[in-house]
Each structure stands twice: as structure tokens, then as C-alpha cells.
Write a protein that binds this DNA or RNA. Structure first.
Lengths: 252, 252
DNA sequence: GGACCTCGTTGACTTTTATCAATGCAAATT
DNA sequence: AATTTGCATTGATAAAAGTCAACGAGGTCC
């Protein structure tokens, strides 16, 4: 699908792949948010070009040395954590403008895997250089902190989902979240293509793939959505949202 | 409904509680980790003193303006997220040396509540000043990033727990985590006092309080631990750890 | 010292989700 | 066009956790 890179931009450093932040249509969502033109130029200068990944390829793996964070330019990723004892938890799905790799800052070693779920491109942001620049550009430093904090808040939301919701509520929340994020990127909030399998959805939501499949079917039977394999159309957003309010909506 | 925490709103601000980082026995666990004496002095200078909280009092609440992060000097906290529709998820328990409040950086508004589960003390670290200082002291900046990243990694661990573990596995992981953290602070890894109720443990682990209670009882019956209300003694750490490896330990 | 009150434990029963197994569907390969 | 392969759906059944309810233990307040 699209978000094709404009061809008329003057690539400053890496011919072909690199696109300046100032020319990027994701800049409002991404790291350069709020920077002056001049500061954006300095950020451009440290970004180590781009990298293309075919579907199924790893952007990084747990255990690898951490050097950079990554901004998704196009495509779709999942991150997952795998333990020695064979547990596998998808911790997130990332789309254009979102930042990947911050798990590695803590120990300088990545703690999860990041896999492209479709052909994708990322910008490579060397972290040491980013820290150096952010100590000179206050708004960059602050925005980096906001992005990390946002990730913490997002994780709390997932904990809420996993800790308090039932299967159908989880799936409704998941669909609404995707819908909202697609919408923020200029795509239809009502109709989209899932890049992940039922098993990956299940792993993310703490459910088995059969449970995910059944919940999809029930939503369809009730006229909330229309499902055809990976193609989803949300028919009744309000009623889907209503699913999230538990039967007894009392407040303490 | 949920045990209402005491209604007292404004925590006492106690000036004069201040203890220099350089004199603090938590400095190896806390923000000043790795700083030179001189830099630690500069950090001391911005830390806005301490604050004492009685058990049940809020350190901050969701919706309040974010100004500072907090380092736990002594005592024990929980953080939880409460949604309009009445869901309540405990997102963490914090003890000495741990940092609270990073959820607020993202939007400048706190997104969760932090409550003292016993009489506690925190150091107040004004965030804007911390950013300013950290742009001058590279190791402080880097360590702040590490702390935030560590929080992200910790949250991934909780997601793994909630998404892939059964009730007894969750409780075993919880006890082992507490044990390890008490141990790191010089307390017994085998014997400790739970500061939180069964309901709070359940909320954190995505279980009902009865399930938590039953799992405790079963652990006791099997000679893994000894429970007496909030007093826990871990009798057989290896066997408790073994509970975490699932029956079928295959690797993909 | 007794009357609360909160918290914890336990039992009986229900609901939800997982598991196992068969079948279907659709894109990729030959 | 036929076959393979991976993914998705559906049904029957089992297991896990939740719900409802009663009771008990410990601490706190008069």
C-alpha cells in the first residue's frame, strides 16, 4: 500500500533511501516533532539513512547489541519477547511514524525481536549521537522523553487490557486502536488489512488463536464488523466501543 | 467494590527531610548511579527535598499536572490505572530506590495514581530541572534514559506474565520478583511482609483475589512457601522457580 | 472488653477460555 | 490445473478461573 516516498526530494546523504525529516510526511508523528527547520537539519544529519526490510525479516533480535533506535517510515512491524522456557509474547505492533528499539537502551542489548510484517522501511537513529544532539537541542531531548514515556503509558494500557478485559473486549479494543492509528495516518478508520495472523493477535491479546477467530465471527454475526480473512471492515464503531464498557458501569 | 483508599487528599510537604544523594545508601540503585561526586552535588542541588506520606495517601493522582518524578527513599507504593468504565489495574509496586511518575512526562499529566502502601518517603525531582541538568551531565542523561527503558522492559515482562502464564505461574513469578528485589536491598529473600492486599496482588496479576488466595494455599500445601496473612516465607525457592517452566519445555 | 470492619480463606457452582481435532479457504508452487 | 502449505474457521470437550456465599482472623475504635 502506499505512503510512497516522494521522488523529487533532494537526498542529502544517502542517495535513494534517505529522505530528510523536513520532507517527511510523518514528521508530525515522529521524532522531529516540534523542531525548528535548523534543528531538524541537524537531526537529519545524524540519522544514518534508511533500511529496507522484506516481509518476515528481522530489524533486530533479542540479544543483539543495541546501537540505534528506529523510526518506521513505511510498513508494519511486530515486536515480541521470547523466554528460554518457550513462552512467546507479542508486545506490540508498530506502524509508520512509530519508534522501535527503546527496549535496548536499558542494558545496551535488545530484549525483544522486531520483525517486519510487510515490506517496510525504517530510519536508523544512532542512539549515542541522538543523546549528544538532544543535550544541545532542548526540544529534541524533551520530545525523546515524551516518546519514551508514551511507550510506558501504552504498555500500561496493554496491562489494563490483559488484566481486566475478556476476550471480546480485548479484541474490540484492539480493533479500535488499529482503527484510530490508521485514521491518524490518513487511512480509513473503518476498513483495513490486518498484517498479522490470528496467532499473533492472540499472542498480543493473551488469547489463543481459536478464541480470536471465534470472537471475529461473533462480531460479524452481530453486525459489528465484516471479516474476510485479513480484511476488516468496521460496520458499527459506536457499538464496538460500547463493548468496552463493562455491564455494570458503576464508578467507585 | 474496591477497598477505598483513605480520602485524604493533600499529602504533607515536609521540608527539611532532605538527604544528600551522596549520603544516601540507595544511590547505587537510584538516579545518581555512576555520577562523580561533583555531579552528584549538582543533582542534590536540584532535588526539591523530600516528602513523607502516611500509608494510604496519594503521592499523585491521574489527571494531576506532572512536574516531578519521585525516587522512593523508604516505604512501599503501588501505581494503578483507573478507567471511566470502572476498570482498575495495578501497574506496579515500587520500593526503595525505584522511580515513580514517568508516566506523566508524555502528556504533562499523570495517567495513573501512586499510593503509599505503608508510611513512606520520597525524593522530589523536578523534571524540567532534571532535563536541564542532564543536558549538561552526559552520564546523568544516559542513566535517566536507562531508567525509562528499564521501565519499558519491566512492563514487557508484566505483559508476558499476563499474556502467557496461568494463575500459579503468575503468583510464583510475583513472589520471586519480590524476593529478588528485597534481596537486592539487603533484606531476606526468603521471608518478607506483603504490603498489599490479595485484591491488589490480584489486580496486578490479572486475577481475582480468591484465585490469589487459593494459589497461596496450594503453594503452602505443597511445601513451597509458608503463608500467614501477609507474612510470607519462601521455603523452596528452586521448586518455586521450576513452576515457571511450562510442562512442555520445547524451544521453537 | 466487646463491636465493628477489613481482609483472607474456603466451598459449591458457573462461565470463560483452552485444547484437540476436523475441515475449509486461498495464495504460492510445480 | 493440481498440489502443497499456511492460515482460518468451527465443533466438542476439558480445564482454568470467576462468581457467589459463608465463615474466620486480626486489628481498631469506642
Amino acid at each position: 500500500m502506499h505512503a510512497n516516498v516522494k521522488q523529487n526530494v533532494i537526498p542529502l546523504i544517502t542517495p535513494g533511501l534517505k529522505v530528510a525529516c523536513s520532507q517527511c510526511n510523518l514528521r508530525e508523528l515522529c521524532l522531529p516533532f516540534g523542531l525548528s527547520d535548523e534543528d531538524m537539519g541537524r537531526l537529519d544529519h545524524l540519522i544514518g539513512g534508511g533500511r529496507k526490510l522484506k516481509r518476515g525479516h528481522y530489524l533486530y533480535r533479542a540479544g543483539e547489541a543495541f546501537e540505534s533506535i528506529f523510526a518506521v517510515r513505511s510498513g508494519f512491524f511486530k515486536t515480541d519477547v521470547l523466554t528460554e522456557d518457550g513462552r512467546d509474547q507479542v508486545t506490540g505492533f508498530q506502524m509508520a511514524g512509530e519508534i522501535l528499539g527503546m527496549d535496548g537502551i536499558s542494558t545496551e542489548i535488545h530484549t525483544c525481536n522486531a520483525v517486519a510484517l510487510e515490506d517496510s522501511e525504517v530510519c536508523l537513529i544512532p542512539f549515542t549521537e541522538l543523546e549528544m544532539l538532544s543535550s544541545e537541542i532542548h526540544s529534541l531531548q524533551h520530545h525523546l522523553h515524551k516518546i519514551m514515556s508514551r511507550e510506558i503509558v501504552r504498555d500500561h494500557g496493554v496491562m489494563m487490557l490483559l488484566g481486566t478485559m475478556r476476550a471480546e473486549e480485548r479484541l474490540a479494543a484492539f480493533l479500535l486502536n488499529l482503527s484510530q492509528r490508521f485514521s491518524a495516518r490518513g487511512y480509513s478508520p473503518a476498513e483495513f488489512h490486518l498484517r498479522m495472523t490470528r496467532e499473533e493477535i492472540g499472542s498480543y491479546l493473551g488469547l489463543k488463536l481459536e478464541t480470536v477467530s471465534r470472537a471475529f465471527s461473533r462480531f460479524q454475526d452481530e453486525g459489528l464488523i465484516s471479516v474476510q480473512q485479513k480484511h476488516i471492515r468496521i460496520v458499527d464503531i459506536p457499538r464496538l466501543k460500547a463493548l468496552l464498557a463493562p455491564p455494570d458501569g458503576r464508578i467507585g
